[in-house]
Amino acid sequence: MLTVTNVHKAFGDNKILQGVDLAINKGDVVVILGPSGSGKTTLLRCLNFLEQADQGTATFSDLQVDLAKATRKEIYAVRQKTAFVFQNYNLFANKTALDNVTEGLITGRKWAKEAARQKAREALAKVGLNGKEDLYPSQLSGGQQQRVGIARALVLEPDIILFDEPTSALDPELVGEVLEVMKTIAQEGTTMLVVTHEMSFAKEVANHVIFMDGGRVVEQGDADAIFLRPKEERTKQFLRRVLPQEYNYQI
């Protein structure tokens, strides 16, 4: 479904991505773990052309693009196939919850207004926000805002949704409601690439876990393989730091 090969990206002399490869099948939930600064956000941003890679290719089903020199048309085409959920939500501040969700359909995809609204209402209901359609982002809690963010991505029915630490800006008591929604849509077969520090989500929901460090994929495998039988020293070190004590004896 999505194959990514040899992505490189530097900011000045600072090499952030140094040859990342990925393969994601339809319906997969892939979690990317890694220490701060390892290039996780940069990788997702390159895939959505929010950042231009220096090298690398991505193949979305039938569409192959050069991440370093895609044409404007290719960039729009990729963005039609993908959606992004941001760490700090980035809801359109001047639009209500409902209009946030319809924007991509009406302006981006030229849907008729009423059909778009209908579909957006369904998406908002799915993330548990019936009755909040007419509120502005400033009137919603962080957890509610992020659920609108997920509905805004979901409504586009993209081939894949990219999540960049969707819960790390939230107050601890609001994390659960967002993870719950992500779990639901994962079980419905949404293909997801998720950068997160929520190990419980990775363990329960991911069918593939990637550990990144220093701009490279250090180790990958299914959740059990990574959490219970990590091979690389760097993976072990990282897990020792982030996993709650109770799991430590397993490593």
Partner: peptide, 14 residues
Amino acid sequence: DKGQLEAAYSVGLT
């Protein structure tokens, strides 16, 4: 915020 523009691009706006 710069994120507003990025969000707009991510939902497919030109």
